[in-house]
Each structure stands twice: as structure tokens, then as C-alpha cells.
Amino acid sequence: MSLLRVNNLRVVFETPYGQVKAVDGVSFEIERGEVVGLVGESGSGKSTLGLSIMKLLPPNARILSGQVIYNGVDLLRLKEDELRKIRGKEISMIFQDPMTTLNPTMRVGEHIAEALMYHYNMDKEEAWRIAKEVLESVGIPAERAMDYPHQMSGGMRQRVMIATAIALKPKLIIADEPTSALDVIVQDHILELLKDLRDRNKASIILITHDLSVTADIADRVLIMYAGRILEVGTVEHIYYHPHHPYTQGLLKSIPKLGSKSELYIIPGSPPDMTNPPSGCRFHPRCPYARGICMKEAPPLVKVEKGHLVACWLYIER
């Protein structure tokens, strides 16, 4: 049985301009110890997907249908206090912006100690001892545990965030753009930390990012998301060396390469307005291969080889 299985999840946001279909029928699963990269551009619904697994969506969001089955339990049906026991302890989250995810009036060690205290009923002393250990494991000296967040740099704060996320030894970590706000060298350290975490704790990681190179470095499998739907799923080899979907191909072509003389490729058009998404395949207005059927009907995800699925009419015999 896989650790997490998302079935046909549909999430909308109620806005004054209409319903935004942020996640529209997404299904996938994650095995224990697996790292899955969830790649998409801004507004593709990848962060919403991450938040709906934790059921931490903003009040104007509604889950229309679907299941999020973690260890055999549908999280979407759990009551708030049952969910609280899972959040942090079983599934934890690393957010994008390290400058705003730490409480400015709380010492960094306390963020960790607090969580240990309410999940394991630890006394204060022991919780702080473990908090310091965890901070050291991500490369922050124990004496900095008494610092306030403003006394630390962005990279250090992101390490603290990671320390908080791993302190309770969760089985699944949802990392929402954990490296986007950091410079490249710090990015590398953070990715190493995540890899280390997977190896040591056998944790599964969902890595949400818009950066294909980050996923290439760490992920076992990659999900390509566009306008609330998954367009292609495969191993890193599948996606990078044999991309099938025209969108994935476009994404790969638009990575700048050092020394290349040719002009950088840009996928034409812009991401769709999600209050009124395109009919049929959501990518058809920007797709060079679009045909009649692409405008009428959404293509299902079909297998092109073992473990490699694509949602595109080009690969479906009719």
C-alpha cells in the first residue's frame, strides 16, 4: 500500500470574480521513502494541492470531491482535532518564504520545542534538548537556539524551518518551494539536507517547485502540473530524456543553457485564467500540436511505458 494516495481531488476558490478551479481532478500516489517533484508554473495549483493534503486551505476554498488517503485513512473526512495529531507528527510542511514562516516573537528553538511538547507531552527541558539536537543536525549551533528569527539570515531560517518540519520525524514532508527564496549555494545545502532526511528517516517528500533543475537533483518521480491538472508523470529519466507532453517539452526547452548561441525558447501565450479555463485540454491554446479534439475533450492520463503517464491526445489511438 502506498503511503499517500490522492484520488480525483477537486478544489475551488470562491472569489468575487467567480469560481477558480485551482485543482481539477488530480490523482497520484507516493510510496514510502520516495521523493516526488511536483512541477508547475505559478497558479498551476501545486501549492493548493500541497495545502489540501494537510487540510490547511484558506476559508474561501472548497474541496468539491476526492480523497486524500494517508496510511489507509481519508484525511479529508477527519475532524479537526484528529487532523491536529497528524499535522506535524505524520505529515509536515516546509513553506516557501523563510522570512515570514517563523514567529518574530518566539525564539527559534521554541518553535521546535513547542511542537515536541504538545505532540509527545514532553517536559520543557527534554523538548529543548531535542530541539537543540535537531538544530545541530541541520547545521545550526545549539547556542543559536535562543536567537530570535530576526537575528538569523534567510538560509539559516530555512534550516530552522526544516528542523521544525523534521523534529517530529514525520513520514511525509510537503516542501513548498523550499529553496526558491534562497541563493544558489544555500539552495544546494537545503537540497542535501532533504536528501539526507529521506535516507535517514525513510521519509517521503513532495517537493513543490517551478524549477525543473531542483527536481532533477533530488526527485525519484516528477509530476508535471498545468492549470490544475496533471499532464505528465514519470521518473526523472522519463521526464528529462523522453518528455512526451508538448508542455513538458516546452518547459525543458526553456531552461537556459550556458554557451548556447540560440535564442531561449519561450512557451507562447500565458497561463490560462482559472475562473474560465479553456475547454478540453487546458494546454491547447498554447500547444503547437493542437487539433480539433483537444478543444472538445480533456485527454485522460494514459500509460506510454511502465511508470510513465501522459495526458495528451497525441499518444492516444483513436
Binding site: M54, L56, D81, R84, K85, I86, R87, G88, K89, S92, M93, F95, D97, T100, T101, L102, N103, P104, M106, H111, E114, A115, Y118, H119, M161, T164, L168
Partner: peptide, 22 residues
């Protein structure tokens, strides 16, 4: 609306903890 409130929720903090500490 600050992210640290959401981060606290993601760690399983209850309403009382979030109100008093965050």
C-alpha cells in the same frame, strides 16, 4: 494571515496555542 500562523497550524498547534503564542 502571516505564514507563521499557517506554519504553526501545519505543526498541529491548537487554537489556544496559536492565539497565545503566535
Amino acid at each position: 494571515e502571516n505564514l507563521y500562523v499557517k506554519a504553526a497550524q501545519a505543526l498541529g498547534a491548537d487554537v489556544l496555542t496559536i492565539l497565545t503564542k503566535y
